[in-house]
C-alpha cells in the first residue's frame, strides 16, 4: 500500500544561537503513509517542521522531497513543490473570507498585471468549494470572514487548503490542540479522508488516543533528537510515554541521544 519515499531528511539540524533545538534528524515518509511526531514541549517537533517547510533556514542537513534534493528559499517554495502545512498558529488572515485565505499568496487571476492583476473571485470560490467537498469540510458561509468563525471552523479552513491544492505532503502541527470534542472529531475525519485518498501526512500531536487512531508510524523526539521510530502495531501508549520521558531510547538512536 505504501509507495516510494516522498520526503527524507538526513542530519537535519537547527541551532538558535547556542540552543540546539534540532540535532541530526534522519527521517523519511512514504507516499500514502501517515506518521505522527510526538514529544514533550520543546522536544524539537515544531522546529523540525519549520525546517522542512523553510519557514526557518536549517543550520545544516539535507532534505529530499519527491525524488530530488531540495533547498527551499521560503515557505512559498515549499508550498509550490507540494508541501502543505497547517501551522499551530493557523496562518489565517482574520479579516478575509475562506477563498481569500485558501488562495492567499497564490491568487487565481483573470489576467496578469503584476501586483495589479485582477482577481478571479469566481474561480477561487469554485476551487474552494471543491476542496471543501474533497475533505468533507462543511462551512456554512464561505463569504464569512475568518474572524467570525469558531476554532474548529478555522482549523478546517486551514486544513482545506491542502485539499484545494492537491499537495504531495501535508503537515499538521497540533491541529486539535484547542478544539472541543465534536470539532476534534471533525478534524480527525478529515485526516481519515486524506488517508483514504492516499495522501501522506505528518501529524504533530500530544494526543495519544488520536495518534494511535490515525497514523501508521510514530516518531518520538526528545531534547532536539529523534529517539524512537515505532510501528503502531508493535507499540502501545505506555511504551511511547517511556520514550517521550526518557525512560527508553531505541538502540539505533542511543549513541546520538546520549
Amino acid at each position: 500500500m505504501l509507495g516510494e519515499v516522498i520526503l527524507r531528511t538526513e542530519g537535519l539540524t537547527k541551532h538558535y544561537g547556542g540552543v540546539h533545538a534540532l540535532e541530526d534528524a534522519d527521517f523519511e515518509i512514504r507516499k500514502g503513509e501517515h506518521v505522527a511526531i510526538m514529544g514533550d514541549n520543546g522536544a524539537g517537533k515544531s522546529t523540525f517542521v519549520r525546517q522542512i517547510t523553510a519557514v526557518e533556514q536549517k543550520t545544516r542537513g539535507t532534505i529530499w522531497f519527491d525524488g530530488r534534493e531540495v533547498n527551499f528559499a521560503g515557505p512559498l517554495d515549499a508550498r509550490e513543490a507540494g508541501i502543505e502545512t497547517v501551522f499551530q498558529t493557523l496562518a489565517l488572515a482574520d479579516d478575509l473570507d475562506v477563498p481569500d485565505n485558501l488562495f492567499l499568496g497564490r491568487e487565481k487571476v483573470l489576467f496578469k498585471l503584476g501586483k495589479f492583476s485582477i482577481l478571479d473571485y469566481r474561480g477561487m470560490r469554485e476551487a474552494t468549494e471543491e476542496g471543501l467537498r474533497k475533505t468533507a469540510v462543511k462551512i456554512p458561509n464561505l463569504n464569512n470572514s475568518i474572524r467570525n468563525m469558531s476554532g474548529g471552523q478555522r482549523q478546517c479552513v486551514a486544513i482545506a487548503r491542502t485539499a484545494t491544492f492537491r499537495s504531495k505532503l501535508t503537515i499538521m502541527d497540533e491541529p486539535t490542540a484547542a478544539l472541543g470534542v465534536q470539532e476534534t472529531e471533525q478534524v480527525e475525519n478529515i485526516i481519515r479522508t486524506l488517508k483514504e485518498a492516499g495522501e501522506p501526512l505528518i501529524l504533530i500531536s500530544h494526543n495519544m488516543r488520536q495518534v494511535f487512531d490515525l497514523v501508521d508510524r510514530i516518531i518520538v523526539f526528545r531534547r532536539g533528537r529523534m529517539v524512537a521510530d515505532l510501528n503502531k502495531e508493535e507499540t502501545d501508549g505506555q511504551d511511547v510515554v517511556a520514550y517521550i520521558t526518557g525512560a527508553k531510547t531505541q538502540p539505533q538512536f542511543a549513541d546520538k541521544a546520549a
Partner: peptide, 23 residues
Amino acid sequence: YTVYGKHTYAIGSNEDAARMSGI
C-alpha cells in the same frame, strides 16, 4: 479586485500569516 488590494488587507490582518503564505 486586485492582488495588491488583497495583499494589503492580508498584511494588515495578520502579517505573519501573510509572510507564511509567501507574500
